[in-house]
Simulated scan of single mutants.
Amino acid sequence: MPEIHVYLGALFDNEQKKSMMREVSNAVIRTLDVKIENVIVQIVEASLDDKMKGGESSGSGRRGSGNDARAL
């Protein structure tokens, strides 16, 4: 039973997350030749204030700086 964990910053709405999980599930079904009922996709979501990249916080201070926080 494949189980996939996706780590995301808290930037995406529920529809985006559902769409991503469907796409990941379809990729697993296609590449591993397993049934959909055996595929688990779980999102592990964290506030951007709880992330750091390159020694800098990814929180609200970077959102307005021109850096796209989605590049984490």
Rank of each mutant, 00 (worst) to 15 (best):
A69N: 10
G66C: 04
L72A: 11
E23K: 09
E23L: 12
S58T: 15
V39W: 01
N14Y: 10
V28I: 13
M21Y: 11
P2R: 05
S65P: 00
K17N: 04
Y7W: 02
G66M: 05
V44T: 06
D50G: 00
Y7T: 05
I43C: 14
L11E: 04
G54Q: 04
D13M: 01
V44S: 11
L8P: 00
E37H: 04
G61R: 01
L8M: 05
V41Q: 07
E45S: 03
D49C: 02
D50A: 05
A71N: 13
V24R: 03
R70M: 01
K53V: 13
Y7P: 00
E15Y: 03
V24E: 05
L32P: 04
R22S: 08
K35E: 14
D50T: 02
V34Y: 09
I4G: 10
M1E: 11
N38Y: 08
S19H: 06
A27M: 06
R63E: 13
G55P: 02
D33W: 03
D33E: 14
I36R: 12
M21A: 15
I4E: 13
D33S: 12
N38L: 08
D13K: 01
E15I: 06
V28F: 08
K53L: 13
E3D: 06
D49A: 04
A10Q: 14
D33I: 05
E15D: 09
G9S: 10
F12W: 12
I29M: 04
I36K: 14
R62I: 14
A71F: 13
V39P: 03
R63Q: 11
K17R: 13
I40T: 14
K17E: 07
A27L: 07
I29T: 02
D50Q: 04
P2D: 07
I4F: 15
A46N: 11
S60P: 08
G55M: 02
Q42M: 12
V28M: 11
E37K: 03
A69V: 15
F12Y: 14
V34R: 07
A10F: 07
E56V: 15
V28A: 11
G64D: 07
S19D: 12
I4W: 09
R63Y: 14
P2V: 07
G9H: 06
Y7H: 07
N14S: 13
A46I: 11
Y7I: 06
A69Q: 15
G66P: 07
S19K: 06
L48S: 04
S25Q: 03
E37D: 10
D13N: 08
R30S: 11
E15V: 09
G61K: 01
I4R: 12
S65E: 00
Y7R: 08
Q16E: 12
G54E: 03
A46K: 12
T31W: 03
E23Y: 04
S65A: 00
R22C: 02
I29V: 08
G64P: 00
G55E: 02
S58R: 14
R63K: 12
R70F: 01
E56K: 14
D49H: 03
S25E: 01
E56Q: 13
I29L: 05
K17L: 09
V39Q: 00
L8E: 01
A10M: 06
R22G: 01
V41C: 10
M1V: 06
G59K: 06
V6S: 02
D33Q: 12
R70P: 00
G59Y: 07
E37R: 04
D50F: 03
M52C: 09
L72S: 10
I36V: 12
V44F: 10
A46C: 11
